[in-house]
């Protein structure tokens, strides 16, 4: 009799558990069936009437029933809790396609970007970065570079003079002269010299009275034209792409002999000839050469023992080629819409 009653209670309780849809309801079931005043307790209280044989059996069954109900309640409770959390989270859903809160972020000027890239490349090859004054003495800007006073290239019309002996430097070469002098005739010298330079030009799409240069200088025993060629090949491939070739053409600069102009193969037409490379397949990017023995000697180096190479490029020109900028004045106007374009790392 009692056995049936217990199984009946179990059945009844489990049904209520299943039916419960809220935690509160479930708790009522718990109190109702498992509480001290619940029907199972009541059944157990009536066990005194049973025989000694039956008592443990009913006792065991009663415990099983309690256990089963408790387990079911626990499971149901977890389920209800999860559902409650899910329901709450569902109300918290947001539109993930809305834009994020912007983080303020600026970036380098394209010219500095080029300068740092070149600096880093050459630092990796064992160069240091040398800098010097933008207002220079005539001596370092010209004379120490084999451009004596009578030289036609030294027209007052072409440079911003301050006095007869002081001017805005017209190239970063005086930094080379100053650095060489500091070395007191002792090689090796391996430097890269970036900086602002000034020429007496009217500003237009291709001219700027202020622009930037990067020059490089290596002095050691046994430096040759082939070393210059190899170094510039590394440079061209790093800055413009692995598929680029370089070409050297003879030229003239007072501070180098032999002197060369350096062209890189045109990326746009792949060397076939187009409007960018003026149908030649090549684009002029820099000037270079073997350091003139007069320049070595003036700086205190023995030109019989040491030789060197030097190269120089216009940063604006490199940036214009690299990024396709069509007017040099953009670099100095600083239109935010221009500056913002140079914001990410290129592979």
């Amino acid at each position: 009799m009692m056995q049936e009653r217990l199984l009946e209670l179990q059945e009844e309780a489990l049904q209520k558990v299943t039916a419960a849809s809220e935690l509160k309801e479930l708790n009522e079931v718990r109190v109702a069936y498992l509480g001290k005043k619940g029907p199972i307790t009541e059944v157990l209280r009536g066990m005194g009437k049973l025989s000694a044989e039956e008592r443990p059996k009913i006792g065991a069954l009663a415990n099983e029933v309690r256990e089963a109900i408790a387990t079911e309640i626990e499971q149901k409770q977890k389920a209800l809790e999860t559902a409650a959390v899910n329901a709450k989270l569902a109300t918290e859903t947001i539109d993930v396609t809305l834009p994020g809160r912007p983080v303020n972020k600026g970036n380098l000027h394209p010219l500095t970007r080029v300068v740092e890239e070149v600096e880093d490349l050459f630092i990796g090859m064992g160069y240091t970065v040398a800098e010097g004054p933008e207002v220079e003495s005539d001596y370092y800007n010209f004379e120490a570079l084999n451009l004596p006073k009578s030289h036609p290239a030294r027209d007052m019309q072409d440079s911003f003079y301050i006095t007869d002996e002081i001017l805005m430097r017209t190239h970063t070469s005086p930094v080379q002269a100053r650095t060489m002098k500091k070395h007191e005739g002792q090689g090796p010298v391996k430097i890269i010299c970036p900086g602002k330079v000034y020429r007496r030009d009217n500003d237009d799409a291709t001219h700027s009275h202020q622009f930037q240069q990067i020059e490089g200088l290596v002095i050691d025993e046994n430096i040759s034209m082939s070393d210059l060629k190899g170094t510039l090949d590394v440079f061209a491939k790093k800055l413009f792409g692995q598929d680029r070739e370089i070409r050297l053409r003879p030229s003239f600069f007072p501070f180098t002999e032999p002197s060369v102009e350096v062209d890189i193969s045109c990326k746009i037409c792949g060397g076939k000839g187009c409007s960018v490379c003026k149908q030649t397949g090549w684009i002029e990017v820099l000037g270079a050469g073997i350091v003139h023995p007069n320049v070595l000697e003036m700086a205190g180096f023995d030109s019989k023992k040491y030789s060197g190479f030097a190269f120089g490029m216009g940063v604006e020109r490199i940036a214009m080629l690299k990024y396709g900028v069509d007017d040099i004045r953009h670099f100095y106007t600083n239109d935010v819409r221009f500056l913002k374009q140079f914001n990410h790392h290129e592979a």
Binding site: T128, D220, S226, G230
Partner: peptide, 27 residues
Amino acid sequence: VEEAARLYGYDNIPTTLPTGAATPGHL
């Protein structure tokens, strides 16, 4: 040397890198 180089042809000059003692590059 320049006369020799230009008539020999710059394209015919090999491509090498300086081989002197190593110098530490840094800022």
